[in-house]
């Protein structure tokens, strides 16, 4: 017997798990990746997908309430601002002539 609450909880668990996975992978990438560009890439994934899907999970968990609208607005804000800041960082680094990592450079 599948109840409505069960479905909601399943969606929340899947979304939080997705977000936590991206946070973990992004953090590992931030520590382990070789150069600035790939680290920025990892950190941006971490913010966008991780925080975004966890905020969505919170909205689903709250149900149809004013606070859920705020959560979705926050998720939209993160979805806009995080890639933009990543883009600005990478662009600034590229413009100042920061070299990227290559296999033959090691």
């Amino acid at each position: 017997m599948i109840s409505y609450e069960g479905i909601i909880n399943a969606i929340v668990v899947v979304l939080v798990g997705f977000g936590a996975f991206f946070f973990l992978v992004g953090t590992i990438g931030l520590v382990r990746l070789p150069d600035f560009y790939s680290r920025t890439h990892a950190a941006t994934k971490c913010d966008t997908l991780g925080a975004g899907s966890i905020l969505l999970a919170l909205a689903v968990f709250n149900g149809l309430e004013p606070s859920s609208v705020k959560m979705i607005a926050l998720a939209a804000l993160v979805l806009l601002s995080s890639p933009t800041s990543g883009h600005a960082l990478a662009r600034a680094a590229h413009r100042t002539g920061l070299d990227y990592w290559r296999l033959d450079k090691e």
Binding site: L80, S81, H87, A88, R95
Partner: peptide, 15 residues
């Protein structure tokens, strides 16, 4: 001098 990135310009104008 570095021109402002159109992406950043758009997002800042939006936000």
């Amino acid at each position: 001098p570095t021109p402002v990135s159109p992406v950043v310009l758009f997002v800042v104008r939006l936000l």
